[in-house]
Design a protein around this nucleic acid. Structure first.
Lengths: 377, 377
DNA sequence: TATATTCCTGAATCAGCCA
DNA sequence: CTGGCTGATTCAGGAATAT
């Protein structure tokens, strides 16, 4: 079967202190992916053949030879053949994906339009297209086009109405000077020690992707313990980064040479300590607290008065956890919206209670309760 | 017919001191483009509907309303309907294009994959995909995706084997710190005075493109006097930039309000002086000089000896313009390659003649002839 | 008049849970 | 599956207004 294992089975859920499981399955990715339980995968990263359609040989102005992609696996007889191939592996991925899973596909102008259109036709829902801007692209030697300085990744959900996909928004923002991460990423090519070479010093694979690119993919759209798969394993960049980041991994690869190099590479990876990977506790994911809990815990008494920051509005706290403004009764949110004449309002960040030291936001009281909940486990 | 004219007919070739001709034709672009002579157009720029498929209303965190694209012209019943629409206008463009013409199409992830795949299926040959990186994109208000900070343009030739398309390589390189222009362009949104507003201060069109973007498109892939068309004229950004840059223009627009605003806008444009637009004389476009002309002009005598810079090789000049090394006869290029054992060689920058003042590169002699040709007009 | 602050807006496929 | 409620969420730049 050409299956190798490292650590526990990838199918077993990873417990808190497990080492991430990594496997490479040698074989056709469509056939092998169909053996996975359906709906078992959290994230797919795919770097399929680009169908470059190169002709002849390209030389630099100094007459040196350009070592281009010239492998059999990148040759297709027609666009239609490439489309059939693409549909097949995308469908196999889709079957294996959880409803909340997302998929990344990388390509260039040679293939990415076909891939994107087929993904839409199959029902995938595009979330973003991401541009990998290369700091050090190969120049256009003939001076007949713009330097092809980027590649494109499509990030898509399984369905239009897929709920709950992972997007580590706050972590990305915190890592980016507190500004939202954009759709254009500037990352160098894979070179130097990171580039796998054979014993003769030749590159093992012509299209090895930089780990920095995969790191950003996995950090943005997966969690530690997730199962990540890559239908076109190649030299195993996805697996190497997955292991380092505490994600479980299954890669599929037809070529035994590539698979062997990838196995060795991934085995040498030391997963990062749990603490460095622990997910951000975001406001969105924080445990829910009902306003009535503040009353039950005695932090606010029925009959107390809530006011906004400028004390323009005052509302009365009822025993049942609703509040009253004039003769209107409702939630802290509803009444807050009504007070402002707005369509919506987050009552937690609108209403205050009056204390001897001045106004106190009720969101601070909620934070106290949350801290107690966290401490209690 | 809703045709307006400005200056001479766009079909007449522009003579040296003509003002560029601009027309906007009100009507369906497929029907109207089919009235153009086939093979008459030098460049197409198309900004088709993106088929955004928006649902509901989006508000900013401050509860303000996001004024999104909600026009009928962007609504399609299905991907298939959008594909049919796309095929039709692309075919009409292709018919009107000269064999050497190229086409630009701009889009976002909503439509660009379908557009690109259809272009390939119709026989267009993609030259580059260009990323317009926005300096000031709209943020992602809900924090559920990456900020969509770019749009994509496809630049394609009419056919795979199209010869002689315009790419002003040297001018772009000179304008870019003497480095090749890349496929990612950083350009701000269209705002401020450049943005067309109606008398109530509302934007005339929801998707007006910045002139800076069109300027780079036209400067890179067209020449003064070329005929540029835009099937989706809108507010006429393409026409405005074309006129300023001395290109003739025909735009197609169904909406009379847009067309009227565009007419007024384009009429107010003052074309730049000829001198600022004169094409860069590039090495590739410089007049060709045959080696035999050096002999005809008496700059080199038959029987003279050509040598390389280190005088390791010596070749004999024949009367017919070929040269001879040992018993091999051929062009300066072929024999130069043979002397070096290389696959190719630019003989002009390899061979020298011996003068009383030392070696002189034959390329310098060619430059003398070219200067004379230029002076003669 | 100069500086500081507020306001406005741009091609947007922009939530998740429970009853 | 729908409806309703909770409550989380924005960057850059130009224009307008206030100090």
């Amino acid at each position: 079967m050409g299956v190798s294992r490292r650590g526990a089975s990838a199918r077993a859920p990873r417990t808190k202190f497990d080492s991430p499981a990594s496997r490479i399955i040698v074989g056709d990715c469509v056939a092998e992916m169909s053996k996975l339980p359906s709906g078992s995968v959290d994230l797919v990263f795919a770097d399929p053949p680009y169908n470059l359609q190169l002709k002849g040989e390209l030389k630099r102005p100094d007459e040196s030879h350009v070592d281009a992609v010239n492998n059999d696996w990148d040759k297709f007889s027609s666009f239609a053949a490439y489309d059939d191939f693409t549909r097949a592996w995308l469908l196999a991925c889709r079957r294996a994906m959880k409803p909340s899973a997302t998929i990344w596909v990388i390509g260039s102008y040679h293939n990415i339009f076909r891939v994107g259109a087929i993904m839409q036709d199959l029902g995938f829902w595009v979330l973003n297209d991401i541009v990998w801007r290369k700091t050090n692209p190969m120049p256009n030697f003939r001076g007949r086009r713009f330097t092809n300085a980027h590649e494109t990744m499509i990030w898509a959900a399984r369905d239009e109405n897929a709920k709950g996909y992972t997007f580590n928004y706050e972590a990305l923002k915190a890592a980016n000077e507190d500004v939202q991460a954009r759709s254009d990423w500037l990352i160098p090519l894979c070179t130097g020690n990171e580039r796998l070479k054979d014993k003769d010093g030749r590159k093992v694979h012509p299209t090895q992707k930089p780990e920095g690119l995969l790191a950003r993919v996995l950090l943005s759209s997966s969690k530690p313990g997730d199962l990540v798969i890559d239908p076109f394993n190649g030299t195993g960049t996805t697996g190497a980064v997955a292991r380092r980041l505490g994600r479980n991994y299954i890669g599929f690869e037809r070529d035994r040479t590539y698979a062997a190099a990838a196995e060795k590479r991934i085995a040498a990876i030391e997963p990062l300590p749990e603490a460095t990977l622990a997910p951000f506790m975001t406001a969105r994911e924080a445990p829910r607290v009902a306003f009535s809990e503040l009353i039950e815990r005695g932090m606010i008494s029925p009959g107390a008065k809530l006011v906004d920051a400028k004390k323009r509005h005052g509302a009365l706290v009822r025993a049942d956890g609703a509040i009253m403004l004039g003769n209107k009764v409702g939630s802290i949110h509803r009444i807050g919206a009504m007070a402002q004449g707005a369509g919506a309002c987050n009552g937690w960040t609108f209403w205050h209670i009056e204390t001897s030291k001045g106004l106190r936001l009720i969101d601070e009281l909620r934070a106290e309760i949350r801290n107690q909940m966290m401490a209690a486990g």
